[in-house]
């Protein structure tokens, strides 16, 4: 059976009394003609790449090709112990920016769901796994839950900044990340759904306005924020807080908001931060260098 909504996903998991990842793996194995082991082996490879990128960007300052950004992940990692926001939030944010730094430096990353939002899932999930002392195999399972949420968003809205703005890229990544974290922390399928709704509602309407058209400003920091929000959304859901608007309606609303956004604010670098005086100056400088 094909699962098209979060509601169907939750009901199916509840009926089978299984975790979302368990039913996703079963279904995807059938659909893609692979064994569950083949699926988890491949996801494990992706998880390795995620961890490596997070380690690289937190252990030293990684600079972008253009030189506009660099070192954000390393700086926050250094400050994580003494920060106000709490160790886990800061580690998650630092790791997310670290992966985003690696991306901007032409390093190896996993598009999750896109290259622009590639830091959020690793930032949140690696940190949650560390805190919860989970094995890699359990984390990889949770990534299937994240992927299922991403697929449902892709079917009912979009994952592309050019179509839906940054809410569709970083917002979706945050929703996918929080889904994985809730499951990893032992939350119910229904709590996964609420967390997804919180993460998307937090950034509803967020525009895609990259300075000079590059995946750097504001993308690196938005990755850092997205990972922190994923952990907060997970904690809210695990505390028993419910989304008043059901997650599927939130996803449809996100799609509608994305359509309503003007083209200037959808990855064209013709609006928002891209056309601020500083944004324009940076653009001139980048082009001069070419």
């Amino acid at each position: 059976m094909a699962i098209n909504t979060i509601d169907e996903l939750i009901n199916f998991a509840e009926k089978q009394n299984q975790k979302i990842s368990t039913i996703v793996k079963e279904q995807k194995a059938k659909e893609q003609g692979l064994s569950e082991k083949e699926l988890t082996d491949k996801m494990m490879k992706f998880y390795e790449v995620m961890k490596q990128a997070a380690d690289r960007g937190t252990s030293k300052e990684v600079s972008s090709i253009s030189g506009i950004t660099g070192g954000e992940g390393y700086k926050l990692w250094q400050a994580a112990k003494k920060g106000l926001s709490g160790f886990n939030i800061l580690k998650a944010s630092a790791r997310a920016m670290a992966v985003s730094n690696v991306n901007a430096s032409m390093g190896k990353i996993v598009a999750a769901p896109t290259a622009g939002s590639c830091g959020i899932i690793p930032g949140a999930i690696v940190t949650a796994a560390e805190e919860l002392k989970k094995r890699d195999e359990e984390v990889v399972d949770a990534l299937f839950t994240a992927a299922a949420v991403g697929e449902i968003i892709a079917k009912n809205a979009t994952l592309a900044g050019a179509e839906g703005g940054c809410q569709a890229e970083c917002g979706s990544a945050s929703a996918m990340a929080t889904a994985a974290v809730v499951e990893l922390a032992g939350g119910s399928p229904r709590q996964v759904g609420h967390a997804v709704a919180f993460a998307l509602k937090a950034v509803m309407g967020m525009v895609c306005d990259p300075v000079a058209g590059l995946v750097e400003v504001p993308c690196v920091k938005r990755n850092g924020m997205g990972a922190a929000q994923a952990l907060l959304a997970a904690d809210m859901a695990l505390a028993g807080i419910k989304s008043v608007i059901p997650p599927d309606e939130v996803i449809k609303a996100m799609a509608q908001v994305g359509r309503a956004l003007p083209g200037e604010l959808k990855e064209t670098a013709r609006g928002g931060l891209a056309v601020t005086p500083t944004g324009k100056k940076i653009k001139e400088k980048v082009f001069e260098k070419q």
Binding site: V24, M43, M106, G107, A111, P113, A115, L143, K155, V215
Partner: peptide, 19 residues
Amino acid sequence: MNIFDIIGPVMIGPSSSHT
């Protein structure tokens, strides 16, 4: 939909279309 198009592919950054 292939699940590894949602999480994945592994690629060199920074941009799926430009890189």
